[in-house]
Amino acid sequence: MTWHAFPWILGGTGLLWMLSFFPQVRRPQWWVLAGAALIVVFIGGLWLELGRPPMRTLGETRLWFGLLLPLSALAVYWFVPWRWPLLYATAIGFLFLLVTMLRPETHDRTLMPALQSPWFVPHVVLYLVAYAFLVYAAAIAVFGTWNARREEERARPYLGLAEVSLWIGFGFLTLGLLAGAVWAKEAWGHYWTWDPKETWAFLTWAVYLGYFHLRREWSDHPRRALLYLAAASVVIFVCWFGVNYLPSAAQSVHTYTN
């Protein structure tokens, strides 16, 4: 399956996901799951077609993120069946997929030697799962901050839901960081070299670590905690693709842009 099929797949996914938005639909999770299944089939087909994991370029990672964000919301929905966060995350996921479609890249079959490692897929997948859960937490935080702008106490349920996603995301983020460290030792001789990408990965981790240490300070101010979570997601995007545009990018061995 090539990228030429993607607009059709995305159209199908969009239709299925749109159905979940109708209030008459009592079980939106199945429509979200069906739409996500189409993207899974596409990613699987692309993987077979390219003969390598489709997670080398920014566009390819965006594709995974567009899939994983609704799936992370679905995982939370399974236990906390609040409808709007699921639809909210699904809409954001679709937006990422749409950007991927509108900004096509060249996808050849090659994979540079540095990426030919058994650590490649687990490292990237762990990170993308982490990003999905953390961005989901940030999305809830933005929504909650706005809705609780007049009454602080209204922020508490939003914070509860955001923190469920935060703990999962932070767990995966740490596992991704550790997998990256072990891979770096195998590939480049040291588990941590303060490469620009590694430094921003550390910053992302530290910013969320800071949240856990500041959380007690905000026991009576849940809106402040939500604001922090919303702002923290900025570091994720700098680490994910912003780092490619920084002056230090030329020194990075992680710059696998298109």
């Binding site: 236990f79 906390v80 509860g160 703990w167 995966f172 740490t174």
Partner: peptide, 28 residues
């Protein structure tokens, strides 16, 4: 020694994911 520390952190990460379950119960 570094890898021993990384292993402890890996267990801690899995426990962090499990912590979400506690929060889910609190939400419910």
């Amino acid at each position: 020694a570094v890898y021993a520390g990384l292993a402890l952190m890996a267990v801690g990460s899995v426990l962090a994911i499990g912590r979400a379950g506690v929060l889910v119960r609190q939400l419910q």
